[in-house]
């Protein structure tokens, strides 16, 4: 790696290249009970959850490229709509 003076990263967006989804041991699973309230979206420390519209209904979607599997979403979901599954790799 070249050492840019001043520890400057000249190209933006380098955190996108770091796909932290590989760190996950448990994956959160959004179930049918999801009402799209967005609480998990706000709480997700990696901004890896987005609520989107699907078939006329708002629903949370996890970006597994970046989700580290911390499962905070599971804890905060008022609908108990998020389950978990062990990662198999």
């Amino acid at each position: 790696m070249t050492l840019n003076e001043g520890a400057i990263v000249k190209e933006p967006g380098t955190s996108r290249q770091n796909k932290t989804g590989s760190w996950r041991t448990f994956r959160p699973i959004i179930t049918d009970k999801c009402i799209g309230c967005r609480i998990c979206e706000w709480y997700c420390p990696d901004s890896a959850i987005k609520v989107v519209e699907k078939d006329g209904k708002k629903v949370a979607v996890v970006d597994y490229d970046y989700c580290k599997g911390c499962l905070i979403c599971l804890g905060v979901c008022p609908q108990k709509a998020i389950g978990q599954e062990k990662e198999k790799r």
Binding site: M1, L3, N4, E5, A7, I8, V9, K10
Partner: peptide
Amino acid sequence: VSLNPTKPVSMGTLGTPEYYIQFRKQ
């Protein structure tokens, strides 16, 4: 290099142990 919204950069970023000492030497 300077801060400019049209071309974002990061300055004084994290220096992990493999790099920090090199920055200090530099």
